[in-house]
Nucleic acid binder design. Structure first.
Lengths: 234, 234
DNA sequence: CCAGCAGGGTGGTCGGACCACTATGCGTCC
DNA sequence: GGACGCATAGTGGTCCGACCACCCTGCTGG
């Protein structure tokens, strides 16, 4: 009826992945909607349940589908966070020169995001920034500092009003990534400098000064970037 | 011996994914190296081959592993291109306001990349840019124009010297993404304007003028961004 | 009226079988 | 002796059928 007898390109699993992606792309599957059961889907595409499961698993790790045990398979909201979660994998598996490249990208995006945030940030958001800033300065526990550091930048990225950019920056600041790079950096007594830089960023945000915010954020990330570049050098 | 009897968190497949990712992260699996067979891997982790296959499939779509039928499973070179291929999926499945967000990110990255390229581009690379520019102006076939347009920007991104950024821009300019957005834009007789903008970018590159290049690239992407924003508006 | 339980339906896992493809080595033929 | 070609073992790819773990609904009983 509708099995189309496709031209047999690639593996059946790959074809199944494309078919489902196409269904979503064409709007035949709406975000949040529930898909037919694995068994039905397999039957519809004329493949085995095993192959269909692999296709579903693939789309699951991409953040497109979500499988709920005992309930069914659903299309995610297809929001930036869902789809860009895999961005963290890149950061986690990168080393050497590519870490510098990732930091360079983060510097570019973070400085722009901070500039946008300076223009758009609300009072509530600014208060939250201050909360994390204070918490960061009130403790010496590296774990806690790192957590508030991440939150500090996340609030700023959100305030910039570009959810996609916030999600990418989230990936570029993933826990393991930060742990690997920041640890060595902070061990060199960079606490004081970091606090100064965070304060400068906050000052620019409070003053709603985009250019100052851009410069402060670029300098903040740039410091780490330079340090890492030196580490990898001779 | 080494099955560890893990604390049973999450699905078996999910744990297998993490285990393999960890092996690579710890350096126990080098890029290009061949993994044990599916059957052996499944036995090592004490799971069925089906579950192991799902884990492998997941890491395959993430660009971490590569399965060659009849030969074996290999770790990819873990280069930016391998890992960021999935970025195209985001672009393909995004619509509405998120398309604008993606274009905004592209504008930020592309303008910076073009500025860097202006400072670093070699004679050979500049010649290639000119080749695609000429080819773009010599035809009226939209397909061919699109192909050379993509190549034009790819050469520039490569010349910027940040492979990761080039890979991200590649994803943000994926064929289907461009087709969806550019088509409507070009239909409004924007050919002439596009050619003028491309010429301006090339002029700045040839003059090795980063600031001019940044401005030209930002304007180029910004034009489309503005158009799309207007389309989605009222 | 509500709480608790039982059933059906769903994804998750398993084991085994067979197919399709690749690579290797041995034998044959020039 | 060397090059070619074929047989073969080993690998990923696909399929099947069964069972388990979990969620949800509806019925039952208080």
């Amino acid at each position: 009826m509708d099995d189309e007898t496709a031209p047999q390109k690639g593996t059946v699993t790959q074809r199944a992945i494309e078919r489902i992606k196409a269904m979503i792309g064409e709007g035949r599957l709406e975000p949040g909607q529930r898909l037919p059961t694995e068994r039905d889907l397999a039957a519809q595409l004329g493949i085995s349940r095993s192959s269909m499961r692999e296709a579903i698993r693939a789309l699951t790790v991409l953040g497109v589908l979500e499988a709920r045990h005992g309930s069914g398979i659903y299309v995610t909201q297809l929001e930036a966070g869902d789809l860009l979660e895999t961005f963290g994998v890149v950061a986690d598996l990168s080393r050497g020169p590519r870490l510098v490249e990732l930091l360079e990208i983060r510097r570019i995006l973070e400085s722009t995001a901070t500039a946008l945030a300076a223009a758009r940030i609300t009072g509530d958001q600014l208060a939250e920034v201050e909360k994390h800033l204070a918490a960061m300065n009130a403790t010496d526990d590296p774990e806690e500092i790192l957590a508030h550091d991440l939150a500090f930048h996340r609030v700023i990225a959100t305030a910039a009003g570009n959810e996609t950019m916030a999600a990418i920056l989230e990936g570029l600041s993933s826990r393991t990534f930060r742990a690997r790079v920041w640890r060595g950096y902070q061990e060199e007594g960079a606490f004081a400098r970091t606090r100064r830089e965070h304060a400068a960023i906050h000052r620019a945000l409070a003053a709603h000064d985009p250019e100052a915010a851009r410069a402060a954020a670029a300098a903040h990330v740039g410091e780490v970037e330079m340090w890492l570049r030196a580490q990898l050098g001779p």
